[in-house]
Computed example of a mutant assay.
Amino acid sequence: MKKDIHNRNDIVKLVDTFYEKIKTDQVIGFLFNEIAQINWENHLPKMYDFWENVLFFTGNFDGNPMQKHKELHNKCPLSRTHFNHWNEVFRKTVDELFVGEKAEEIKMRAKNISDVIMYKTIQ
């Protein structure tokens, strides 16, 4: 039975599951693996902090997602399709793992953050 997102352990589960899909994704996987050349060992803990802060306001994230996406866009132009696909995979991953108020909130916040980054990056 699925439960809601309650703590960092749930965030870790979500982030790990999501990025396991992204690593081999046919639409956007190359952006992470070949273009950005993500070091997953370093990237994943940053994403745990980011999403934990987004959902629980922990204040433990230190980074600039906007700048990172602009740098990526300069290497390989990002498109609305890339952002929409990222959102679809994220939403489906949340729905596979969790149900409840925080699960709905993280999907909404992810979409809003993605929309802002998309607007400011690909305009």
Results as ranks from 00 to 15, higher is better:
78 L>K: 08
109 R>N: 11
79 S>F: 09
59 G>P: 14
43 H>P: 05
43 H>Q: 07
10 D>K: 04
26 Q>N: 06
80 R>V: 11
49 D>Y: 02
10 D>H: 05
9 N>A: 07
57 F>L: 12
95 D>V: 13
83 F>M: 06
100 G>Y: 13
38 I>F: 02
4 D>E: 04
117 I>H: 06
25 D>N: 00
2 K>D: 01
51 W>K: 00
40 W>F: 12
16 D>N: 08
12 V>K: 02
53 N>R: 02
88 E>A: 15
49 D>H: 11
3 K>L: 03
44 L>M: 04
7 N>S: 09
67 Q>K: 14
18 F>Y: 08
53 N>E: 06
84 N>R: 10
120 K>R: 14
103 A>R: 09
79 S>E: 10
119 Y>A: 13
117 I>N: 12
43 H>I: 00
101 E>V: 15
119 Y>D: 14
4 D>C: 00
68 K>E: 14
85 H>T: 10
76 C>Y: 10
85 H>I: 11
120 K>W: 05
116 V>T: 12
31 L>P: 07
99 V>N: 04
9 N>D: 05
114 S>A: 14
58 T>V: 07
35 I>E: 08
63 G>I: 01
123 Q>T: 12
7 N>I: 08
12 V>P: 11
28 I>V: 03
68 K>V: 07
14 L>N: 02
41 E>D: 00
39 N>D: 13
104 E>T: 15
101 E>M: 12
2 K>V: 06
122 I>Y: 04
101 E>S: 13
9 N>R: 02
2 K>H: 10
1 M>H: 03
90 F>H: 05
16 D>P: 07
46 K>D: 05
71 E>A: 08
78 L>G: 11
69 H>A: 03
123 Q>A: 13
30 F>Q: 06
89 V>F: 07
3 K>I: 09
46 K>I: 01
26 Q>D: 09
122 I>E: 10
120 K>S: 14
33 N>K: 00
36 A>T: 11
53 N>I: 08
68 K>P: 14
92 K>D: 15
55 L>Y: 01
118 M>G: 10
119 Y>G: 14
9 N>T: 03
79 S>N: 10
119 Y>E: 15
82 H>I: 02
31 L>F: 05
28 I>E: 08
